[in-house]
Amino acid sequence: EQRVMALYDFQARSPREVTMKKGDVLTLLSSINKDWWKVEAADHQGIVPAVYVRRLAH
């Protein structure tokens, strides 16, 4: 499974989004949309801005 790391803090503004802190490692579920990526963090799935995360090497 692909992982991403948060580059910045992000506060969810809707139930579809995921709140994350800089340095958090999340599971990447989908990167089809270039602006918003779907991730999973602590059993919560949602979207985060793609520019706020970076793919981690396997």
Rank of each mutant, 00 (worst) to 15 (best):
Q11R: 06
H58P: 15
A50P: 02
P15F: 08
K21M: 06
Y52H: 09
P15I: 08
Y8R: 15
V4S: 01
L28Q: 02
E17F: 06
D24E: 07
T19L: 09
A57S: 14
Y52F: 09
L26D: 06
L28R: 00
G46M: 00
D35V: 12
G23S: 12
I47H: 11
H58W: 11
H44F: 09
L26T: 07
L29D: 05
Q11A: 09
A50V: 02
P15Y: 15
H44E: 10
L28F: 08
L56M: 12
V48K: 06
Y8I: 13
A6S: 07
H58T: 10
S14Y: 06
Q45I: 13
E40H: 12
E1A: 05
Y8F: 15
A12S: 02
V18F: 09
P15W: 03
T27I: 07
V39T: 02
L7G: 06
W37H: 13
A6Y: 02
N33T: 05
M20C: 04
S14Q: 03
V18S: 07
G46S: 00
V18W: 00
D9T: 01
D9R: 00
K34Q: 10
S30W: 02
T27A: 00
Q2V: 09
A12R: 09
E40S: 11
H44K: 15
E17I: 00
S30Y: 12
T19Y: 06
I47Q: 02
E40L: 05
A57Q: 14
Q45G: 03
W37L: 15
P49H: 08
V18G: 06
Y8S: 11
L26P: 04
W36R: 01
Q11W: 00
W37Q: 05
K22S: 02
V39Y: 06
L56Y: 11
A57C: 12
T19A: 09
V18Q: 05
K38V: 15
D9L: 06
R13P: 05
V53L: 14
E1L: 07
K22A: 05
K21A: 06
S14V: 05
K38S: 10
E40G: 11
D43Y: 05
W37C: 09
I47M: 15
D35N: 11
V51D: 14
K22R: 10
Q2W: 01
A50I: 12
K34M: 07
A42W: 01
R3A: 06
S30A: 05
K34E: 07
L7R: 04
Y52E: 11
L29Q: 09
L28T: 07
V4E: 01
V51I: 14
V4L: 06
R16E: 14
S14T: 12
D43S: 13
S30N: 12
V18N: 06
A57N: 13
T19G: 01
S30Q: 09
S14I: 10
A42S: 11
S14P: 02
T19I: 05
N33H: 14
D24Y: 02
Y52K: 07
A6F: 00
G46A: 03
D24G: 01
Q2H: 12
E40Y: 06
V4G: 00
D43G: 15
V39C: 03
E17Y: 13
A41G: 14
Y52L: 10
R13L: 03
K38F: 14
P15E: 12
H44Q: 14
D35K: 12
V51Y: 10
T27L: 03
H58G: 12
T27W: 00
A12P: 00
V51N: 12
S30P: 01
L56K: 08
T19K: 05
E17N: 04
A42G: 15
R54M: 07
L7W: 04
R54Q: 13
D9E: 00
V53Q: 03
P49S: 07
A41V: 05
D43I: 09
H44V: 11
D9S: 03
Y52N: 04
A12L: 00
L7C: 04
S30K: 09
L29R: 03
Q2T: 06
S30G: 12
H58D: 15
K21Q: 12
L56P: 08
D24F: 10
H44A: 12
